[in-house]
């Protein structure tokens, strides 16, 4: 009996070794089965130019500048055509009604000036040594060689609050969103210029492009499933029509009527993920930062459009 018992133990040990060695679905990083939505060609050097391509709805001609928006303003409120304007008529004060984006801007300016008065280093930190912040936000996201990481506007505000104020203005918090919105408004109407000549930015862009196409969540959706023409772009999707990803980063942080508050681009990613039943990541997460780089390169040459409301 004792012999048999020890034999069966040996056999069990051998079997379990075998089971552990057998390749499971997640064996090895390269072996994980992950699906991606088919890629449409995007040339990052063209900025918003790609929005003219059929793969992305070919809507550029309707919203690319003031003249185009003016020429097509009769589409505002028209369920058939409104999506082609890419909601750009909601930036600044193009319609007669003032919107709460201006209230958010006021709050941000007050908060920034309060802290910059208490501690002038806050201003020079945001200004990377300079005190004039005009035009700076249009160059974000950018690679910071000293910190050795990609910085978004919100990431910079968080970093400067920590180092200059010893305050925690976490990305996605009201204080961070308000100051970021004010910081971006100081570049209002400046063309977005993410540096596509930077190797670090382009590496991040490529990672973001991959995430844009990755199928995730319970619905097995990618960003591209909704925001390319082979997917739902330009199609009625219940009460809405998904729009192009081009030019989309320009108006964030934006005042979101449905939320009753400001929302950063990465908080929008969170809501997109949750709507598609996908785990949402915290603002400032490296994956969301890559996605923001990708999105903002697709907004290159479009003017920073803060304040805005959606």
């Amino acid at each position: 009996m004792a012999g048999n018992h020890s034999f069966s133990l040996h056999a069990l040990a051998l079997i379990s070794l075998f089971v552990m060695a057998a390749p499971g679905p997640a064996a090895g990083a390269g072996a994980v089965y992950r699906e991606a939505y088919p890629r449409a060609a995007i040339d990052p050097s063209r900025g918003i130019g790609g929005a003219g391509d059929a793969d992305f709805g070919a809507t550029l001609q309707y919203w690319q500048d003031e003249k185009s928006l003016e020429q097509h303003k009769q589409w505002i409120g028209d369920p058939e055509h409104e999506w082609k304007l890419n909601w750009k008529f909601l930036d600044f004060d193009r319609t007669d009604d003032m919107h709460p984006g201006y209230l958010a801007l006021e709050a941000g300016e007050k908060l920034f000036k309060l802290w910059a008065k208490r501690e002038p280093a806050f201003r020079t930190c945001l200004g990377e040594g300079k005190t004039d912040l005009k035009g700076l936000a249009a160059t974000y996201p950018k690679y910071d060689p000293k910190l050795k990481r990609i910085m978004t506007v919100e990431g910079r505000v968080e970093h400067c609050a920590q180092t200059a104020l010893w305050e925690t203005f976490k990305q996605g918090s009201p204080a961070n969103n308000q100051i970021s919105l004010y910081f971006k408004s100081l570049s209002a109407r400046e063309p977005i210029r993410v540096d596509t000549g930077s190797a670090e930015i382009m590496q991040s862009y490529r990672r973001g492009e991959k995430l844009f196409h990755a199928k995730v969540g319970q619905f097995n959706f990618s960003c591209a499933s909704c925001h390319t023409s082979s997917g739902l772009l330009g199609q009625r999707f219940r009460g809405q029509v998904p729009t192009t990803p081009f030019g989309d980063a320009a108006h964030f942080p934006t005042y979101r009527l449905a939320l009753g508050d400001i929302e950063s681009l990465q908080q929008r990613f969170m809501r997109c993920n949750l709507q598609a039943r996908t785990k949402a990541l915290p603002p400032g997460d490296p994956a969301y930062t890559d996605l923001e780089v990708f999105y903002t390169v697709l907004s290159n040459d479009y003017p920073v459009s803060v304040p805005s409301a959606r």
């Binding site: 992950r34 969540g217 039943r277 996908t278 785990k279 990541l281």
Partner: peptide, 24 residues
Amino acid sequence: GGKGTDFSEWPCLSYTLACGRTPN
């Protein structure tokens, strides 16, 4: 969406969380 789930049992975009390596 199930019982108060945060959907972390499904594939996600994270580089660090387990769902980032969850197969489709």
